[in-house]
């Protein structure tokens, strides 16, 4: 089984296998590097439209997906960039003997196509093969070339410290933020980018192999499940369960508070029976109601997110989509800032 990408080639959608896709991408990138400027852009786009035609022929003859062999044959038909320039650019003014020899030497030095590597920028991903909760610290450790367990221990120690405030809450929040924001390394390409290895046909193939369950046990990235990480995992699950319970309580409490205060406020405004209202400590100032409602809603949403996150870890529940996470995050930030603002106003009254 292979992952396929839908790719738009000259306005036409093709489904392309991942390795074929990377190969084609490399090829077009090489063409772009070879043919520069506006003239070059035109050449490359013309070649791309020819590739589209060749693929269309392939699809017309019954193929559903463009595979690596198709891309190889296209590259053979079109020619590699150095072959094309070699055929064409001789009659420009640079065809004096010296530069001809120069270009030939250069060509001999240039590597064969498949080994062509682009410098790959190392990227931060969550390491899904070395994780306890979400792979955040595993990913950071991979990014920094550190040992993940040492980083985890360090993180846990800092979280247990008590400077001028208990560090547990900010560290947990920081972790959850990382979980939300940092994408997981799922595809072979992402795994390679996470390790900072070049992404090309060979390495992707290798990553495929390492990723498949049969070859996994000896993968380099897989750290031995020793006693230490087992303890960490157990402690982590307990902490996560605790956080889940806290989240559920916050959700329920927040909702109850939100609804009841809201009800009280309605009562205050629309009833002619002021008795109940005068028994409340805040004497029915609407801003206090609003303030409490905002904070209860903030607590409820935070609790819901926490409960869901722990459910994801403990019961393998489906994770929320990225959009949901970001929306909830923004809502929470807005609510908290609004709550602070309203509280400040209320306190100054």
């Amino acid at each position: 089984m292979k992952r396929t990408y839908p790719a738009n080639i000259d306005g036409q959608i093709f489904y392309i296998d991942e390795d074929a896709y990377l190969m084609l991408q490399d090829y077009l990138q090489q063409l772009r590097l070879t043919f520069k400027g506006t003239e070059g852009a035109e050449i490359v786009s013309d070649i791309e439209s020819r590739i589209r035609e060749l693929f269309e022929e392939r699809i017309a003859s019954g193929a559903n997906v463009i595979v690596k062999a198709d891309v190889t044959s296209v590259i053979e038909t079109m020619g590699r960039p150095e072959q094309i320039t070699d055929e064409v650019q001789m009659d420009r003014e640079d065809c004096s003997d010296e530069s001809m020899q120069g270009s030939r030497v250069q060509q001999e030095e240039s590597k064969p196509f498949v080994e062509f590597n682009f410098p790959t920028r190392k990227r931060l991903y969550r390491n899904m093969k070395n994780k306890i909760f979400g792979g955040v610290l595993g990913g950071v450790a991979t990014y920094l070339d550190w040992n993940a367990n040492i980083l985890r221990l360090l993180y846990a120690v800092i979280a247990c410290c008590n400077f001028w405030v208990p560090m547990l809450v900010p560290m947990v929040v920081l972790y959850l933020l990382g979980w939300m924001i940092i994408p997981p390394a799922k595809t072979p390409r992402q795994i390679l980018e996470m390790k900072g290895e070049p992404v090309n046909v060979d390495t992707v193939g290798q990553a495929f192999m390492e990723n498949s369950p049969t070859a996994a046990p000896n993968g380099q990235e897989e750290e031995p499940r020793n006693f230490f990480s087992l303890i960490l995992a157990v402690v982590g699950k307990v902490v996560m369960g605790f956080l889940g319970i806290v989240g559920c309580l916050a959700l329920i409490g927040g909702l109850i508070s939100f609804l009841s205060v809201g009800a009280c406020q309605l009562w205050y405004h629309f009833s002619y029976v002021p008795d109940l209202v005068w028994r409340l400590p805040w004497h029915g100032e609407p801003i206090y109601f609003v303030c409490i409602m905002i904070w209860s809603l903030a607590a409820a949403i935070a609790g819901w997110a926490l409960a869901w996150a722990s459910a994801c870890v403990l019961f393998n529940a489906g994770a929320a989509s990225k959009t949901t996470k970001i929306t909830v995050f923004i809502m929470e930030i807005l609510l908290i800032s609004l709550g602070i603002a309203v509280s400040v106003v209320a306190a100054s009254m």
Binding site: E39, I43, G79, I84, E87, V88
Partner: peptide
């Protein structure tokens, strides 16, 4: 021609 790609730089240059 053997390589199809050869033609495109050629056409572009003739056009320019």
């Amino acid at each position: 021609i053997v390589m199809e790609g050869t033609l495109y730089p050629l056409l572009t240059r003739l056009k320019n």
